[in-house]
Amino acid sequence: MASLQNLSDDQIAILGCCGALAISFGVMTISFHIGRFVRGEKSSDRTGVAPAATREPATVQRQESRRAA
């Protein structure tokens, strides 16, 4: 605790922010694992999370129609 007395107010604030980020990361991690346990997910693969893209992006479609005109 003696080392905290040598720090300025700004340095203490930065340490507080880093501590808050570390705590929120820990809560997020615990929440993620509890959520997976409740849903019954067992494997760590995340395949199938994002839907497969079946169409080209709208910008590509607009460029092709512009070329055809």
Rank of each mutant, 00 (worst) to 15 (best):
C17F: 12
S44M: 13
S44T: 13
R36W: 09
A13G: 06
C17N: 08
R67E: 12
I34T: 03
F37R: 02
T29C: 13
R46K: 10
V38L: 15
R39P: 00
G19N: 00
E41V: 14
V38C: 09
R55A: 13
E56R: 09
L15Y: 05
A50P: 02
Q11Y: 02
A52D: 08
A20M: 04
H33L: 15
L7D: 06
H33E: 15
A69T: 03
S3V: 05
S24Y: 00
D45N: 13
I30V: 07
G16L: 04
V60F: 05
I30T: 04
M28F: 12
D10W: 11
Q63T: 14
S8P: 01
A58I: 15
G26Y: 01
E41N: 03
F25H: 02
A13L: 09
T29I: 11
I14V: 15
I12E: 00
C18K: 04
P51F: 04
A20D: 06
H33S: 11
G48S: 04
V49H: 02
A20W: 06
H33G: 14
A20L: 10
I34M: 08
A68C: 04
D9V: 10
A69V: 00
A69N: 03
C18R: 00
R55M: 07
A2V: 10
N6G: 11
T29S: 15
S31M: 08
Q61F: 10
G35M: 12
K42M: 11
A52P: 14
R46D: 08
R39F: 09
Q63N: 14
C18A: 06
Q11W: 01
A52H: 07
R46F: 06
I34G: 02
D10C: 08
E56S: 09
I12L: 12
I12F: 01
A68S: 07
T47S: 15
T59R: 08
R46H: 07
R46V: 09
I12Y: 00
R62D: 08
N6P: 02
G48V: 03
Q61T: 13
D45R: 05
Q61V: 15
R67L: 05
A69S: 09
K42R: 13
P51V: 11
I30C: 07
E64Y: 10
S44F: 08
L21C: 14
A2E: 09
A68E: 10
G19I: 00
A22T: 04
H33N: 14
M28N: 07
A2C: 09
R55G: 11
G16M: 01
T59P: 05
S65Q: 12
P51E: 14
M1N: 08
S43Y: 06
I34V: 13
A68L: 09
R46C: 04
L7V: 01
F25Y: 12
G26M: 01
V38Q: 13
R36L: 15
L21R: 00
R39N: 05
D45K: 06
A22G: 05
S43V: 04
G35W: 13
H33K: 13
